[in-house]
Write a protein that binds this DNA or RNA. Structure first.
Lengths: 234, 234
DNA sequence: TCTCATATTGACGTGAAGGTCGAATTGACA
DNA sequence: TGTCAATTCGACCTTCACGTCAATATGAGA
């Protein structure tokens, strides 16, 4: 019986399921392991410098074997990029609901900055990771940069020329935001006034105190729901 | 003859010069080698990330043997700190002549920022090194930070409260400056308008456009001599 | 229960970087 | 020119992280 079965199945009958189905089966397990690795890297980046993290660190943190790492990623840069991508994606998602309704460029910019700082204040680990990745993997945030730049161009058009190019404004806004992030991550500025920070940014890019205040008041209330308990890993 | 001489000198006569004199003799050679190592590290930091520089890189660049490195420094961090210290010292020196005469805090701040950006524009290698070290060895710039903070406190006192703490202002100014440095080092912003940048900074910390312009006009002309040919290594 | 594609494992080879130390060099002095 | 202390040299050892791969485990379908 066994013999017959083996011969039968081995030569003609079994062996070919559906290759597409096969891939589907693997996908879930595969995706879970990959997510574990990304989460582990994220978690490590919250604790130590990006450059000091090793493959061994990541696999240990993720609880998988070293070989598994290389099934999912070519190198540390690859997993770092994945972490950055996930961070950008998730923040973007967070922004969508509020952002859609805004048309005034100044408001869009203020809203984005406000949400960013708000998130950083509520989730210091997130702040640490973003600050470190911004330095180590600037590639990741490029999309966000581009969007901000477009808003700034629009914004500049609707303003009497103040001699500050949109390119310079971009660097100024990004510089302020990243520095605040770093400061939060390093324990300086344990609690700052979001409004004050946004106001400074708006004034730096050309609004006067009056206008900045007006923009602040027109900001959608509580730009993000305050479920601050979730860790940076999510 | 040889025998007598050896015995004579070896036992009684020679052997003890003056230990203080000895040290003096070595000092010059020693200092030169140390300076070579610091210059080599500086030069490497202008080309590649601080963390990617190895001891072998440094000694190769300096043209000395590995063992020599460890005579002068305990580790890469030590030589990195030395580079940072030298950078701060030399910039400070550059600032002294113009800074002495200034009493208005806004003017002091503007002058410092202007000189900084000016230097960065004239010496992109310097900009790269400072930008990288600011991220990798924040310890080094602490003195500069402290001085800027004091100026900002004075500045804030003489201003109607705008809700922005001096601590936050410090991060804002530093953030803008470092980001401009990074942008220059990475080729974005190949040439920016110094006045525009300073104006943005002044407005961010509470001045209105009018006042910012006034401060800019009161800046000492050509804050630094423009011998821009010297490389970042010096 | 058996089979097979897929995913996972971890021991291992390789090379690069850190750090050491006895030998060699240098140069002021007698 | 010989001596000695200070400096420099570079071969060598050690550690550690990278990346590989043959062996093993998993689990859906027959």
């Amino acid at each position: 019986m066994t013999y017959l079965h083996e011969k039968f199945s081995g030569c003609l009958y079994v062996a070919k399921i559906d290759p597409i189905r096969r891939a589907e089966i693997g996908r879930e397990k595969r995706a879970r392991t990959r997510a574990q690795l990304v989460a582990a890297a994220n978690s490590l980046f919250a604790r130590q410098a990006v450059e000091s993290v090793t493959v061994d660190d990541v696999v240990k943190e993720a609880g998988v074997a070293k070989g598994t790492f290389y099934v999912h990623f070519d190198s540390l840069e690859a997993v770092t990029a994945a972490v950055a991508e996930e961070l950008v994606r998730s923040f973007d998602e967070l922004l969508q609901p509020g952002r859609g309704s805004l048309t005034d460029p100044a408001l869009k910019i203020a809203f984005g900055c406000y949400s960013f700082i708000d998130k950083a204040l509520k989730d210091p680990l997130w702040a640490s990771v973003v600050a470190r990745l911004a330095a180590a993997a600037p590639k990741g945030g490029e999309i966000a940069r581009r969007r901000l730049f477009e808003d700034l161009q629009q914004f500049s058009k609707a303003l009497p020329d103040d001699g500050v190019s949109a390119e310079l404004k971009l660097e100024i806004v990004v510089g302020i935001m990243l520095q605040i992030l770093r400061a939060l991550g390093e324990g300086r500025l344990s609690s700052i006034d979001r409004d004050a920070a946004i106001s400074a940014i708006l004034r730096a890019i050309g609004l006067n105190a009056q206008e900045a205040k007006s923009v602040l008041m027109r900001l959608p209330a509580t730009p993000m729901s305050d479920n601050s308990s979730r860790s940076a890993t999510k």
